[in-house]
Design a protein around this nucleic acid. Structure first.
Length: 199
DNA sequence: TGAATGATGCGCT
DNA sequence: GCGCATCATTCAT
């Protein structure tokens, strides 16, 4: 039942990324990530991200200055920052803000849209976590520093409307006070379920 | 339903 | 050496 029809959408340009990170993070929910690899297209709707903002954010990789690994974060917005974590998983980030201000948005979870087999019925968890997303999308260190505005990995606006919820970030030991994990409040495709509200 | 744990490699002190 | 922006599995309650 998979369609090979290409869904149209507007590619997000440099001006989308080169803004305050929290603004970008809130607007990025509901956007679509597209990866064209060898003529095969995968796409997914973004449901959950985290913001890592500047050298005053202790959880941000740039907190202790520029290194070879995090150098891309110090450049212009609109590039991919990919790193290896725990020796076995990759995490994909979107660099934000202008040159000189290091910040990025971690893609934590998404809803599969195009280019997947759904025979297992476990699609809700297929992309639910930063490591799982990269494994399925085959994102690795070779994709670090790719230009999202001019390449085969990019974001699209397909006009989806969303309601967002903010929570503390996951898996960090410092910087827990900020509500910089941003989720689609209605989505079933999150890395962790939101706390249900009690009456 | 939740806590503990092992796998695994790189960057940094 | 140690500590990670993780995940799947095992064990306890």
């Amino acid at each position: 039942m998979n369609s090979t029809h290409t869904i149209r959408g507007k590619r997000l340009t440099r001006s989308f990324y080169e803004r305050p990170t929290l603004e970008v993070a809130e607007e990025i929910i509901g956007k679509y990530i597209v990866f064209d690899k060898n003529g095969h297209r995968k796409s997914a709707k973004i449901t959950e991200v985290e913001a890592y903002i500047g050298q005053d954010d202790p959880a941000c990789h740039a907190a202790r200055g520029m290194t070879k690994r995090n150098a891309i974060m110090f450049g212009r917005g609109g590039f991919a920052y990919v790193y290896l974590i725990y020796g076995m998983y990759h995490c994909l980030n979107f660099v934000t803000e202008s040159k000189g201000f290091p910040a990025a948005i971690l893609l934590r979870s998404a809803e599969p849209i195009e280019g997947f087999d759904f025979c297992q019925g476990s699609d809700k968890k297929m992309l639910s976590g930063p490591g799982k997303f990269c494994r399925v999308f085959q994102i690795n260190l070779t994709h670090n520093s790719l230009d999202l505005t001019n390449g085969h990995l990019y974001l699209q606006d397909r006009g989806a409307e969303t309601t967002i919820v903010k929570t503390p970030r996951i898996g960090i030991s410092s910087g827990k006070g900020h509500l910089w994990r941003i989720c689609d409040a209605q989505s079933q495709f999150l890395s962790q379920p939101l706390k249900s509200r009690r009456s």
